[in-house]
Amino acid sequence: MARLVMVIDTKKCVGCMDCVVACKTENHVPEGFNRDWITEAAKGKFPNVNLEIRSERCNHCENPPCVYCCPTGASHIHNYGGVILVDHDVCIGCKACIASCPYDARFIHPEGYVDKCTFCIHRVEKGMDPACVSVCPTHCMYFGDLDDPNSKVSRLLNERKNHALIPEAGTKPHIYYLT
């Protein structure tokens, strides 16, 4: 089984929010909600200040607490690429998955079910990139199979210093940030 991951180069990301707009358009995300967003993390003391701009979303974790705590099996690991999805017709809206996500990546869709990033699985299964990756004007986002040692994402993660978000939560996130 492929292991789909996203690699985001924080040295290239300018926080233009094209990825956010593309996601909203592609997935008809309702007004007032976001499946992906921009975070700016500033650290340090002048003159040694570091600013990291990140495009964030569901981390499609390898050890997903949202899947484990779901009482109906609505949150599940898709058989293609290990992508974490929510079956809207099975979700009861108990919100346990929202509470279990250390990244706060999920929300309640106005229709009542839990919604979040799907890695644009409908596009990926057709061989396309997720909408956010395909529109990025600085080409800072990469998408591919981590199990393929020759994929762009594998090579980037081997060559460049990188980090994931909240690794101490033990969820083994599938989004990596190049620094």
């Binding site: 007032g32 976001n34 975070t39 340090g44 919100k95 706060d104």
Partner: peptide, 21 residues
């Protein structure tokens, strides 16, 4: 200094999680 700003403003999630009343 450590500062985190985000463009996300999802209902019940931001600025603080409050999903269970």
């Amino acid at each position: 200094m450590e500062e985190l700003t985000t463009t996300r403003m999802n209902e019940m999630i931001d600025p603080i999680l409050h999903i269970w009343g």
